[in-house]
Design a protein around this nucleic acid. Sequence first.
DNA 1: TCCGTGACGCGAT
DNA 2: CATCGCGCCACGG
Length: 104
Amino acid sequence: MNKAEQRDTAIRRTIRSIPRGKVATYGQVAEAAGYPGYHRQVVQVLARSEGLPWHRVLGAGGLIKTTGEDAFDQRTRLQMEGVAFHGKRVDMKQHQHVFATRRR
DNA sequence: TCCGTGACGCGAT
DNA sequence: CATCGCGCCACGG
C-alpha cells in the first residue's frame, strides 16, 4: 500500500482507539498516529469515512470546530458519554485521552 | 500545473 | 478573549 493509505489507516486506527468518555484533538491524533503536522489530513478522514467516533475529535483547546447540525450532534453525543463542558469548551483536564507514546 | 478551499494549529497582536 | 497571519496537507476545478 502507498504512503497515503498508510497514513489513512494509521489515523483511523488512532481515532478508533479513543475510549468512550474521552476526547482528543486533531493535532494529537495526527501525532499519535505517527504523522505530526498532518492534522488537516485527520479532518479529511473524519469527514469522509464512516463508522468512526468522530465526535470524540475536537479542535485545539477542546473546542468544537464542526459547523451547523454536526456541532449540535457532537456536543450532545459527548454529553451523553459523560463529557463535561465549560461554556463552549470541553474540560480537557478531565477528558483528554492520552495516547501511548509510540514512534516509528 | 496553478489556485482556492476546508470539521485545523499556533504564536502574535 | 477575538482576530490575523502564516504554516500544513489533500482535493478538486
